[in-house]
Simulated assay, not measured.
Amino acid sequence: MSKHLHVDELRCFYNGHHDKPVVDGFSFAMQEGDIACLLGPSGCGKTTVLRSIAGFHSLAEGQINLAGRQISVPGHSLAPEKREIGMVFQDYALFPHLTVAENISFGLNGESQQYKDTELNRLLELVSLHGLAERYPHELSGGQQQRVALARALAPKPQLLLLDEPFSNLDVELRRKLALEVREILKQQGTTAILVTHDQEEAFAFADHIGVVYQGKIEQWASPYELYHQPQTRFVANFIGRGAFVPGIISDSGHIDTELGPVPCNLEEPGGTRVDVLLRPDDIVANRDQGQPAEVIHKVFTGTANLYTLRLPTGSTVEAALGSHIDCELGEQLSIELSADHGIAFTL
Rank of each mutant, 00 (worst) to 15 (best):
N266G: 12
L310Y: 07
L98G: 00
H76K: 13
F346G: 02
R83M: 06
P281H: 01
A193S: 08
S251V: 05
V23D: 10
L38E: 02
V263C: 15
R234K: 13
P21Q: 12
N65A: 13
A203R: 01
N238Y: 05
V148G: 15
R122E: 10
D164K: 00
G16F: 07
G303T: 07
G40W: 03
H4E: 00
G241V: 06
A133F: 05
G248N: 10
L161D: 07
G55W: 04
L174C: 03
G142N: 04
T304P: 04
T197Q: 06
H255Q: 10
D24G: 07
E226P: 00
G272C: 08
V148E: 05
L140T: 00
W221T: 01
T48Y: 14
C12S: 08
L94V: 01
I71L: 11
F301P: 08
V100C: 04
I256T: 12
R234M: 12
E337L: 04
I210G: 00
V300F: 09
Q113V: 10
E102I: 02
R311V: 06
C265R: 05
V318C: 04
I185Q: 05
R83F: 07
Q292E: 03
R288V: 01
H298L: 06
A179R: 13
V213D: 05
Q63V: 02
F346M: 08
R51P: 01
L307F: 09
R11T: 15
L178E: 13
P247N: 14
V212P: 07
